[in-house]
C-alpha cells in the first residue's frame, strides 16, 4: 500500500456551528456524556466547535465557528516525543497520530505539549445511564479514568475500510469507505477529507488553494488539518494573537 497522509480541509465559511460533528464524534468513539461536574475544561470533546468573533461591536460584529480537533501534526509532532512510554505515535503509513489509551499512564505531559489543546484527560470514570451501554459502538473500546484521549480520525473506520479492501483483494482503500464520523455528520458538507499525499485528490487541491491555512503554522509542526475561508479576518486567526483582545470569546 502506498504511503498516505490523511487530512482534512474545513470550510469555515460553511460551518453553521450546529455541533453535529461534535456529537457524532462522541457517539462514534464511545465518549461518555459529561459527568455532572464536568465543564468545558474538563469534558471530553475530541472534536469541539469554538465560536470566535471578529472583535467588532454593533452590526459589524461577526462570528466564525471553528471545529477543533487533533491537527495530526506531521513534523516535530509535539505530543509524540514527550510521551514517556510510547503511548503516542505517528503512523508512518497513514500519517495519523494515534493515542493508545491502554498504554497511557495519565501523566498529561502530552497535553501540556499540544498547542491546540486537542487532548483530553478522562477526569472521571466513563459512565452511562443503566442500559445505555448497549448502544456503544463495538468498533471502539471505552477508555478508563485517568488516561488521555484525542481524535484519531476514526481509526476503527479506517480499519474497517482496510479490511474491506483486503477482503476484495484490493491494494488501496476505497476513499468512499473511509469517512470519519464528523465528516459524515456535517450537514453543510464543510469538511473535506482525504489523502493529502494524493496530489489529485479534492482535499489536496483544496489545501493548496490560497484561501487555505493552518493554525500556528510557524511552529513548524506541519498539521494535516487545514481550514479555509474567504474572509481575511478569519484567515488571520491562524497566527497567534498580537494584541490581547478581551472580546475574543463569545458572550
Amino acid at each position: 500500500m502506498k504511503k498516505r497522509r490523511y487530512g482534512m480541509v474545513i470550510d469555515l465559511d460553511r460551518c453553521t456551528g450546529c455541533g453535529a460533528c461534535s456529537v457524532a464524534c462522541a457517539a462514534e468513539n464511545n465518549v461518555p456524556p459529561a459527568a455532572p461536574r464536568a465543564t468545558e475544561r474538563t469534558g471530553i470533546t475530541p472534536l469541539r466547535v469554538q465560536p470566535v468573533s471578529n472583535g467588532a461591536s454593533g452590526p459589524a460584529r461577526r462570528e466564525v465557528f471553528i471545529p477543533l480537533m487533533c491537527m495530526q501534526c506531521g513534523e516535530h509532532t509535539p505530543c509524540v516525543s514527550v510521551c514517556p512510554q510510547q503511548a503516542v505515535e505517528v503512523d508512518s503509513a497513514t500519517g495519523i497520530v494515534t493515542q493508545m489509551p491502554q498504554r497511557c499512564l495519565g501523566c498529561r505531559y502530552c497535553m501540556t505539549a499540544c498547542p491546540y489543546h486537542a487532548r483530553y484527560f478522562n477526569w472521571w470514570d466513563p459512565e452511562w445511564p443503566a442500559g445505555m451501554e448497549k448502544t456503544l459502538n463495538p468498533g471502539v473500546a471505552t477508555r478508563m479514568r485517568g488516561v488521555v484521549e484525542k481524535c484519531n480520525l476514526c481509526h476503527s473506520r479506517l480499519h474497517a475500510a482496510e479490511d474491506k479492501a483486503a477482503a476484495a483483494n484490493q491494494r488501496e482503500v476505497n476513499p468512499a469507505d473511509y469517512v470519519p464520523a464528523c465528516v459524515e455528520a456535517c450537514p453543510t458538507g464543510a469538511i473535506l477529507f482525504g489523502d493529502l499525499a494524493d496530489e489529485t485528490s479534492a482535499v489536496a487541491r483544496a489545501a493548496r488553494a490560497p484561501q487555505a491555512f493552518r493554525l500556528l503554522e510557524k511552529l513548524g509542526t506541519e498539521p494535516k488539518v487545514y481550514y479555509r475561508s474567504n474572509r481575511p479576518w478569519v484567515r488571520a486567526l491562524a497566527e497567534p494573537r498580537t494584541v490581547p483582545a478581551k472580546e475574543v470569546q463569545r458572550g
Binding site: G19, A38, E40, R48, P129
Partner: peptide, 15 residues
C-alpha cells in the same frame, strides 16, 4: 435531550 448533547452546552461553549 440525548445525553451526548452535553458536548454542545456543558463540555464546550457552543450553546
Amino acid at each position: 435531550l440525548p445525553p451526548l448533547a452535553t458536548k454542545l452546552y456543558q463540555e464546550s461553549n457552543l450553546r
